[in-house]
């Protein structure tokens, strides 16, 4: 049997998937492993099925920007490394990497998930800047949600390093037990539409066959903090409502997995 877009589309219409999952089922195993890097302030390896993403949080003290002199900052980078997929090449980030970083960044930044004012130590002089690096290790589909989960897990597990009260120098080798000032916990879930059917956590084959997708980042209370539509097919308001419902349901499922993993 030749597996192509038509096969995937035909199956989706019959509410079936190539790997036997139901349409709204995530792949297993879901593994969230924290503190994988000793040099980062927070680090995590997230695996959903065969898709693996690593994320790290680095903290540094810098001069705040002039227009927000009483706030720290946050920056999210994503690298789709060539080792993770034959589609990715070496060199400057492609359009997929930029979108990935933007969607994760917007979910966290625009929902004001990190209290940037609490990162400020001395207005106009010194504030903490948070850098989140996301690296794909293996792309077997659904990098977006895996990366979003990894970023949130890394932020949640990050701890401030020790700062010498006299010299102000940072001792990266010693960590305090102070976590980042997280006020919300936005988690992105992407719902895909293939041949009219809605599904989550696509495999790579399914990612190549979708008509439209909607990424919905939501907080633990179900408030939506970011949306991003992709794909060529336009959507009706009713379809968007259905996609949001499915995304919220799956976000609470992944959130439970995350809570479980961080408790260990």
């Amino acid at each position: 049997m030749i597996i192509n877009k038509e096969t995937i589309a035909q199956l989706a219409k019959e509410n079936r998937r190539l790997d036997g999952r139901t349409l709204n089922e995530f792949r297993q195993p879901i593994i969230i492993q924290t503190d994988i890097s000793w040099t980062a302030e927070g680090s995590v390896r997230v695996q959903i099925g065969e898709t693996v993403v690593m994320a790290g949080v680095k903290l540094s003290l810098e001069k705040p920007y002039n227009d927000t002199s009483d706030e720290g900052g946050i920056m999210i980078n994503a690298e789709l490394s060539p080792l993770s997929s034959r589609e990715f090449e070496v060199g400057p980030p492609g359009i997929k990497a930029v979108e990935l970083a933007r969607v994760v960044d917007r979910g966290i930044r625009e929902s004001k998930a990190i209290d940037l004012k609490a990162l400020c130590i001395e207005p106009g002089v010194k504030a903490w800047f948070v850098t989140v690096d996301i690296v794909s290790i293996n792309d077997a589909g659904n990098l977006l949600d895996t990366a979003g989960l990894a970023a949130l897990a890394a932020l949640k597990s990050a701890r401030f390093p020790m700062v010498d009260p006299e010299t102000g120098a940072i001792d990266y080798k010693q960590k305090t037990d102070k976590p980042l000032p997280l006020t919300k916990e936005p988690l992105p879930i992407t719902v895909y539409q293939i041949n009219g059917s809605l599904l989550v956590d696509p495999s790579q084959e399914e990612e190549n066959a979708y008509e439209a997708r909607l990424t919905v980042a939501s907080d633990s209370d179900g408030t939506i903090s970011a949306l991003q539509k992709g794909g060529v097919a336009p959507l009706s308001i009713e379809q968007i409502g259905n996609m949001v419902d499915l995304a919220l349901e799956k976000a609470s499922f992944l959130r439970k997995e995350l809570t479980k993993a961080l408790k260990k």
Binding site: A226, L235, I237
Partner: peptide, 30 residues
């Protein structure tokens, strides 16, 4: 929005909104 079909071809969102307000906003967008 596409005029004839009333379908949405661009949808992005930043900030905070509940699902019911989102649908209300989209109707207003129409």
């Amino acid at each position: 929005m596409l005029h004839n079909t009333k379908e949405i071809s661009l949808l992005q969102m930043d900030g905070e909104i509940s699902k019911s307000d989102l649908l209300k906003a989209l109707e207003m967008g129409k």
